[in-house]
Amino acid sequence: MEPSFEFNWEATINSIPHLLPGIPYTLLISFGGLAIGFFIGIFFGLLRISPLRWLRWPAIVYVEVFRGTPILVQVLFIFYGLPQLLGSPINALVAGIAAIAVNSGAYISEIVRGGVQSIERGQREASLSLGLSRTQAFRYVIWPQAFRRMIPPLGNQGIISIKDTSLFSVIGVGELVRQGQVYIASTFTAMEVYLMVAIMYLAITWSLSIILRQLENKGLVGQ
């Protein structure tokens, strides 16, 4: 059989209006999940560096569990598993946001821990020697510096989580990949449409990269 494939640019362009409705879902799941994941990350990241062992170990367990299992399994567990426990179905969008939140939360915990631990001991000593309490030293001296150092790895995690949302087509959320699959089912132009899907992901992640680079440059003063 002769290979008779010819790339159809028109199909790529035509797919745009069919894919666009997926973008708000992709953005909502990733940024909603990341926002929650950020707070989860700060919470467990700070527990992880507590001097008290019984505060540290829940953080260790959390990170190991959610970093050590695939996000696809996590979302399937939430979407299909949890309803058995709750007795009522979970909205697919909610399940997607929750999966990004618990998954990115585990990675962000480690980012927070690394950021805080990277601040020289002298900063804390200088703060305490001035009479600041440990909480004040953290709030006014350690955290602002740690946060600046956390921006690049946080950006990295943001980009990873945005791409992870593509897996949630399996639970039927109408995000980008799902919209593409639905459209392809009627046109059979898989290559053309998935190319456009990829371009749209790239547009989102690239925009984020640019914003982050500007944030980083701003934060460089005084470092």
């Binding site: 002298g122 900063q123 009479g131 005084g222 470092q223």
Partner: peptide
């Protein structure tokens, strides 16, 4: 009791003036 360190330990994210005013304001 005030202390001056070998490595200065100034707060790099704060301007010189903010380094000096931080503790009097917060403490």
């Amino acid at each position: 009791v005030g202390m001056v360190f070998q490595q200065f330990n100034l707060f790099p994210h704060l301007s010189v003036i903010d380094n000096v005013t931080l503790a009097p304001m917060k403490v």
